[in-house]
């Protein structure tokens, strides 16, 4: 029973390519017990508990996934180091908000070169609420098409996944759903202004 392992380049390529490969490497990252325990250790040494540490690990994977897909990840940094760095910043931000200020920094061998602030890493609760209210007006099928498209699934794969008769039909539906979302956004200028002020 051999476990799959991936180099940093393979992780990045798989996440960018989307589809099942992305799922595989996310699972691979999730199963990195050593990294997970380092993150949990950092959180538990800084006013958090084990569950908080697990949450940070999850949030870190979510941000890493997005930043790689959006080409925001600098490839000179190791994926593990970057993930650790994200989790650390996310937790530091959270405990600052909670007023628990004393930080016991972990001077491990992990890279700490990334200086992106947590606010740039995840949507704020307010942004989430607004975006959710907009996208929630789309049907579930439309949401799924757009999600798969954004995850770089090909039109053939989308057709197969969602039962369209052809890639052309998938493309047509994707365009229709995308237009619907834009129309919903256009109908809510106040919400859009709030988002633009971020």
């Amino acid at each position: 029973m051999k476990a799959d392992t991936y180099t940093d380049k393979e992780v990045i390529a798989a996440i960018k390519s989307g589809g099942p490969k992305r799922q595989e490497v996310i699972r691979f990252l999730y199963q990195d017990a050593s990294l997970k325990s380092k993150i949990i250790q950092f959180v538990t040494r800084n006013s958090g508990n084990y569950h908080d540490g697990e949450d940070m690990f999850h949030e870190g994977i979510i941000v890493l996934d997005r930043n790689i897909r959006q080409n925001k990840f600098k490839e000179e940094t190791s994926v593990q180091g970057y993930l650790y760095s994200i989790c650390r910043f996310l937790w530091m931000n959270q405990i600052r908000k909670q007023g628990k200020v004393t930080l016991k920094e972990d001077h491990s061998e992990m890279d700490s070169t990334d200086t992106t602030t947590p606010e740039q890493l995840l949507f704020t609760d307010e942004q989430k609420e607004i975006l959710q209210s907009l996208v929630g007006q789309l049907g579930e099928r439309c949401q799924k098409i757009l999600e798969l498209w954004k995850l770089s699934y090909s039109m053939e794969e989308i057709a197969q996944e969602l039962g369209f008769s052809s890639a052309a039909m998938a493309r047509k539906n994707k365009y229709r759903c995308h237009k619907s979302l834009l129309e919903i956004i256009k109908k809510h200028p106040k919400l859009v202004n709030t988002l633009k002020e971020r």
Binding site: H58, I62, D65, R66, Q132, Q143, E147, K150, L182, V192
Partner: peptide, 23 residues
């Protein structure tokens, strides 16, 4: 701007799905 917001909204869907899967 509207396209940008649409992309963020789709990104939120991806984020929510991944969070559910990790949980």
């Amino acid at each position: 701007d509207e396209h940008h917001i649409a992309q963020d909204a789709i990104e939120l869907l991806i984020e929510s799905d991944l969070r559910k899967e990790l949980n």
